[in-house]
Nucleic acid binder design. Structure first.
Lengths: 129, 129, 129, 129
DNA sequence: GTGGTCTAGACCACG
DNA sequence: GTGGTCTAGACCACA
C-alpha cells in the first residue's frame, strides 16, 4: 500500500500522513471509506501501532479523516469552506514553487500546459471502470 | 535583511536557507554577489554563527551558492540543465498542491488565472540590467 | 425523535444520555412521563438495545429518570435541593466557560445580554405548576 | 502545581490539557511564559513524559501554547478572531448549562448576579502585587 | 476487534 | 537540556 523511507529526515508518522492524504485527495480512498485498522496497517508496514495511531490522529486534526473508537477510522468527506486557511497556505506554496521553477529555467508555456492538463484530467474524475 | 521567527517549530537554520533561497530566486541577490559574512549576519540577526554556517553549508549543498575558502560565500549563477532533478521534484510538488486545492474545492479557472498572473508578473518583473 | 451521530467520537450511549437529558430539561418529556421502551427505541434508532440500556442506567444514576421493573422507565420530577452537588458543578462550569470566553476576546456586555435573553425566554417557558 | 486524578474516567493527558488551559485563561501563566519542561513536569507529577508531551501537543493544536524543539514550550498570546469557532462552541455550552441550572431550580437573579460578579472581577485583571 | 491511553526506555536534532 | 520520534508491550472502553 505504501512505501516508507525509514531513513528519511521526515518522521515516519509524517510520511504516513502525507501518503494517506494523497490517497484521499486523489480519490483512491473514497469518502466514508474505512481506513486499514491501526494494528493491521502496523503489521503490514512492520512499524509500531502507536506510530500509525499518531498519523491517524494527525490526519483527524487536519480534517481529512475521522476516527470512531471501537469502530474504526474513516475518510471524512470534504466540506467546502472548511479548509479556507489551508487553501490560502497552498496558494502561497504554489507561488513559491512557480517562482523557483522560473528561476531554474522552466518555460512559462510548459508550466501552463502542464497545469491545464492536470486540471482537465482531475475535472473529469476517475469513474474507475 | 531577514525576519526570523524564533517561535516557529521549523529550525532557525532551515528558515535561513529558505529566506536566502528566496532572495536568490527573486534576484535580490545577484549571481556571483557576495553573501554577508557569517559573523556579520550572526551579529545582525543575534543568533549563533554556527547556525549561519549550517545554513550556508546547506545552500551550497543544494547548489544555490558556492564558497571560496578565505574569501566568503557567493551566489551561484543558475545553469540550465543543472537543476533537472530539482525541477522534476518541483513539478511533482506542483501536481500535489493542485490536486489538494481541487480536493478542497478551489475552482480550476481561479487556479489558472492566479498562475498566469504570476507568470506574466515574474516574466516582466526585473529588467534590471 | 433523536438524531445520533454515529461518526462522533463520543460514545453513542453518551449522546443518548445528553439528548434525553435535554428533552427532560426542556420539558419535552414531562415529569413521570414514560420513556420509550428499550427495544422500541433501539428499533427506531437502529442501534443495539444494550446501548439504550446503558444510557437509561446512566440517566437513572444521575437522577433524571427512575425505572420500575416490569413497567418501564419514567422521568423523575426534579426536587429542589436534590441536585445541590450537580448545581455546584454547573456553577463551576459556568465560571470556567465565562473565563475562557473573556480570554478569547468576548465582550462582557455581549455575554450578559445573551444570558439575560435566555433567562427571560426560559422563565416564561414552562409555568408548569 | 496540579492535582491529577489517576482514577478518573477522563484521560490523564486530557486533565492536564484542562488544568494548563485554566492556568493560561486565568493569567496564572502569562503570554510567552515558558511552561515546565516535559521531563520536569513528568517528574513532579510522577507520570510518563510521553503523557505530558501528548498534553502539550494537544494544547498546541488548540492554539493555547507553542513548542519550539530544543528550546521549550511557551504560552501563546491570544489573538482576537483566532478562536471564533471555539467561541461559538462555548456559547452553546453556556446555553446548555443555564438551561440545566434553571431546570434544577436555580434562581435567574442568582445566576445573573454570579456572572456579573465574575465579569467585573476578571475585567479588573490581577495586578499581582 | 476497534481506537485510545499509558508506561518504560532508547535515540535524535537543535541551539 | 530541550522537544520530538519510535518501539514494545499492557490495559481499557465501546459496539
Amino acid at each position: 500500500m505504501f512505501e516508507l523511507d525509514l531513513r528519511s529526515r521526515s518522521p515516519v508518522y509524517e510520511q504516513l500522513v502525507e501518503k494517506i492524504k494523497d490517497l484521499i485527495i486523489n480519490n483512491v480512498l473514497q469518502p466514508d471509506e474505512q481506513l486499514p485498522a491501526v494494528r493491521v496497517l502496523a503489521g503490514e508496514l512492520t512499524i509500531n501501532p502507536n506510530t500509525i495511531q499518531k498519523a491517524y490522529r494527525e490526519l483527524e486534526h487536519r480534517g481529512y479523516i475521522y476516527s470512531v473508537p471501537g469502530k474504526g477510522s474513516f475518510v471524512k468527506p470534504a466540506v467546502a469552506g472548511d479548509h479556507d486557511a489551508r487553501l490560502r497556505a497552498l496558494e502561497n506554496e504554489l507561488s513559491r514553487i512557480i517562482s523557483e521553477m522560473l528561476y531554474l529555467g522552466a518555460y512559462p508555456a510548459d508550466i501552463i500546459t502542464r497545469i491545464q492538463t492536470q486540471l482537465f484530467k482531475d475535472k473529469g474524475g476517475q469513474p474507475h471502470d
